[in-house]
Amino acid sequence: MSFITRGFTGRSRERDDRLPPGQTLVHDFPVLSAGPTPEVDTADWEFTIRTEHGGRRWSWDEFMQLEIEDVTTDIHCVTHWSKLGTNWRGVSLDTLFAEVETEYDYVMAHSYGGYTTNVPLEELLGGRAWVAFEFDGEPLDPEHGGPARLLVPHLYFWKSAKWVRGLELMPTDDPGFWEQNGYHLHGDPWKEERYW
């Protein structure tokens, strides 16, 4: 139920069907994080999936032996910017979960530095989520989440946890860090699920 603001014409009319409502196309790559950028050496890096039965752990070298996929996708940040056609390389969560058994339906992603975010398990499967370690053909920059971040591009980008170190399966959809601090539990950009 918008009304016109006097004198505002806007600049861009390049509406693109790939832009969700309320988003603006950017060509740089803004950074958002709640605290300092953690320094994580790949020699120390490990990735774990923890379930009610135990779990699975990979070192960086083991991770690099998994099937690696090239992903081209649009990304949408809750702070109103989107980038179209970004290029990533990473391991599909389908590959990781092929080695894991669980009855639980929800996931908490944990990051180096303490960040957490919650995602339903089914939204991480079916070719929709990766652990990504390259952006535009280069190792992922630490300020953008390197050495590796979650990539869940169909949800707002705070769900794509930077510096990811593991996934914890949960019986209920508990809120992660930003979800406790004002952001939506789910975060679908096409429904503008930005805030509580």
């Binding site: 918008s2 009304f3 016109i4 603001t5 505002f8 014409t9 806007g10 009319r13 309320g22 603006t24 702070t79 109103h80």
Partner: peptide, 15 residues
């Protein structure tokens, strides 16, 4: 968030 709307319905939102 601030939302501005132009006469043709175009909107721009910023934080």
């Amino acid at each position: 968030d601030v939302r501005l709307t132009a006469p043709d319905g175009y909107t721009a939102t910023r934080s």
